[in-house]
Amino acid sequence: MSRNSAQMPGNQNEAEEAPKRGFFNRRKSEPLLPEAGAGGAPLTAVIAVISFLAVLAMAAVLIINAAAQDWTASLRSEITVQIKGANTAEIEAGSAAAMRILNETDGVIDAVLRSQEDTAALLEPWLGQANASAFLNVPALIEVKVSLELRGDLELLRNRLAAAAPGATLDNHAGWHGRLTTAARSGQALAFTVFLLVMGAACAISSFAARAGLAANHEIVSVLHLVGATDDFIAREVQRRFFLLGLRGALAGLATALIALTLIGVVARTNVGTDSFLPQFTLGGWMFLWLATVPLVTCFVTALTARLTVLKALREQY
């Protein structure tokens, strides 16, 4: 049969009467799968909750990362020299010798000898407000800021200090640094695990909704097949529908999470100076950009899961 025959047989006059549709009154295409069949409002609400939790989990990853960097940055650039001695004179002589060595060393940015009072104050949590230096030979402490190059190899400085002041020991805070880094990484891993679990929940919900939608639209899917639709065409229709539903829900979840994070940020800032557990943070540009990717990831995960589910179900059932 000719595929170029533009008019039906015997229908020339009626064809001329066909309504002409211009640019502004062209028909808006209805989606081939009705909205109710793909979960609709309940699915959007569930994805909003999932997106909310995913954004919070991602925010936790970013905030812990930023806090850990702040905590460890000072530890990376500072070392402490401690000078012990049998008496005050010996400690003072050792301190002077150590200061001389430090001031001569390339890579030492600053070296400050803490006063006896400052050092004794550090012992107050354990010894109370008694004058510890009156009955103890409290070691002298020198706080030293060093370059990263010197920080990378402290052995020479350690040996020179030991030679000049036999009671001197050098602490590079490696233990603290290691423990803080481990704690921060554990926190990040935990938050990221929560993020992955939430994405897993998105997959499960999407898969369930896609199968339910397919079952609800069984007749439509059959007709689409019979008029020549491929499985991929039907899966694309479902994927498009889930992406739009997911986008709507994910943006709602993002907006709610940003409000919650802003409030948490305000609370954290008002507790500055107290013993607040909350780290300081603001929703800056880079953090906002990272969080804005979460709804996109959620949409992508939701739509891709729906597509794969539908392709599998079509092969199994049709």
Binding site: M8, E17, A18
Partner: peptide, 15 residues
């Protein structure tokens, strides 16, 4: 296909 579809619907008196 807009024209073809409209033409067919007109032909079956569903214009």
């Amino acid at each position: 296909y807009r024209e073809d579809v409209s033409e067919l619907l007109n032909w079956v008196d569903l214009g």
